[in-house]
Design a protein around this nucleic acid. Structure first.
Lengths: 190, 190, 190, 190
DNA sequence: AATGAATGAGCTTTCATTCAT
DNA sequence: CATGAATGAAAGCTCATTCAT
């Protein structure tokens, strides 16, 4: 009996993500995926039950990965400003370093019909808990969790997605944006 | 091969938008559109040159509509806080009242391959000019245009898209968010 | 607008029936059917909603045709023996002249999953009424309708299906079988 | 590539028969069979050379089983009427007690392409010899073997297959049918 | 201008079978 | 012997688009 090849599963997932960036969520057909991954279309179905479940699997895996990456870059030694900066900058860095993955995640989460059948992402819960903790410790102002998160997460996406700016210009924008959000959320002025 | 019955063109566009909300960007095929719009598939091609151009047409039209709506609700008589609130609230109101349209616009603008072939939206230019004007008149702080816009536009989308909250709860979140953004952007404290 | 081509629908149905005889119910795929019928696979779907509904349509049409044929060959001028003979012989004649159709009908009616979704055949009702009438008029003995019908319909199928006999031998068997059934069912001895 | 675990072969055969009843002759794929039988698809090929040969094997085995069952219930001590009744009733009883098997056999024998490649069933020969013997001993009338068999075998199938009747109603029909056939075939009136 | 018919290309998925362990 | 992995081929069906009327 041939054994399950984790390399193969990985390369299928990468093919999906790559095709999603190149040709959009539409051009991502099973046969194209198989071709890029170097397997037969039928083989895809030994690793995933259906196309929909495959997409959800990938979404879940990479969502967790992003959360893990972001959380790994903030720690207790940081002061207030560093915490906010760490969250935003790590998110931005991930997007820049993994544009394909981010594009996939973003397109997926904007597809109501797909995201509906997907269970809660663990990493999201942890990040919400982090925000709650920052409020408890009176580091950030007493805004609703949802608004704090929206403030940290949404504007930075707009910067990352801006394809008409150079890397340096975007770095400038990001630097400024971090300042804006720090002044919005932090209690301490300094 | 151009225009005639505006009623028919309208109903095709509505069909597209409605199907996009109900079945996602995928389930939006020409024949389904034609069925919902009450015309023949061939007729769609009397009004649009191809599916891609049709989607871009619709995107452009509704994008302009949104911008027009937002701009129509801010005027010179308003004070500083009212201006920011007006912009954000009008955007939010539009989304709430036209969920189908917003869902379409959002999914479209998250499809790199589609949005690429689409010329600049006029209304966006006007809004950018408004932001520039507000900076010139020393109403909002001297941040980059892009960041000001991101701040006004992005977080509110997160509130509107939150399907697990009631209308009242979302109104609360919006109210708070407006305050957050006002304090971030405005020069005058009052 | 091109108009619906009844010839094309007919040739699709014939292709189904022909393939069912040649390659069994299994080898009857949409693409083979299309090839034999001289149309594109997609065209099949402008005439039928799905493969299953297509099969049911064909089953219904030919079932009615058989019943119509059988009923058209018995009439009130006939005496008792002629009536029974007419029913059996016309059924047998139809099968001999339309082996493909009969094979299709027989295979279909032996597929529980298909026959389940199929509404009652009108012609069957008429034949049941004929049997009832023959009993009312005291031509055939007072057996249950179901048994009378089974007696008329089932044994003759075995003769028709017997591929190891010549036409003449089968005619002999049929002649004898008619006698057997007449003596079983008829009240009058003569 | 042959035999070993009779238990496993049995459970494969049962899986085939069960799936044929539940999902028709179509839904009976090797992988489904393997799943139901609790083995791997590859294992099926340890016991059978191909799917077609597997089906023929099963057909042959169960056909022999039916014949054996029927023959085991008639014996020389019986009088004329009991003989006919024994044959018909034992056949009916087998069908009622083994609907899955009968459904399989019936569908198989209605598939010309399958039944063609199948050698003669031994049990059928024995039953034909029994019929010949009954004729020699002047118990049943001098009809052709084929017609005698058709009379005994065909109508009872129609009763067994009638799914719209209760068990009791079918027992009534069977009782009457036995009488009809006895009067048709037997020489002695009593 | 408007339409239902028509289609080649492509979709997702399953098939019977073989391979490597 | 037994297996899950692997696959070319084919399944049923839908697609965006064009054709003939």
């Amino acid at each position: 009996m041939r054994k399950r090849d984790d390399e193969k599963e990985k390369s299928i997932k990468q093919a999906v993500v790559r095709l999603t960036l190149e040709e959009g969520f539409h051009g991502t057909s099973i046969s194209k995926i198989a071709k890029v991954a170097g397997v037969s279309p039928a083989t895809v179905y030994t690793y995933f039950d259906s196309k929909e479940m495959m997409l959800q699997d990938i979404y879940r895996e990479y969502s967790e990965e992003i959360c893990h990456f972001v959380l790994s870059r903030v720690h207790y030694g940081m002061n207030d400003r560093q915490l906010i900066e760490g969250l935003i900058r790590s998110y931005y860095d991930y997007i820049e370093a993994n544009q394909e993955i981010f594009s996939f995640i973003d397109q997926f989460s904007n597809s109501p019909s797909l995201v509906g059948g997907c269970s809660e992402i663990e990493g999201f819960v942890k990040i919400k808990m982090l925000v709650a903790d920052l409020k408890d410790r009176e580091i950030i102002k007493n805004y609703h969790h949802e608004n704090v998160l929206a403030m940290i997460v949404q504007p930075v996406k707009a910067i990352a997605a801006n394809s008409s700016k150079t890397k340096a210009e975007k770095a400038d924008l990001l630097h400024e944006m971090i300042g804006m959000i720090q002044s919005t959320l932090l209690i301490k002025e300094t």
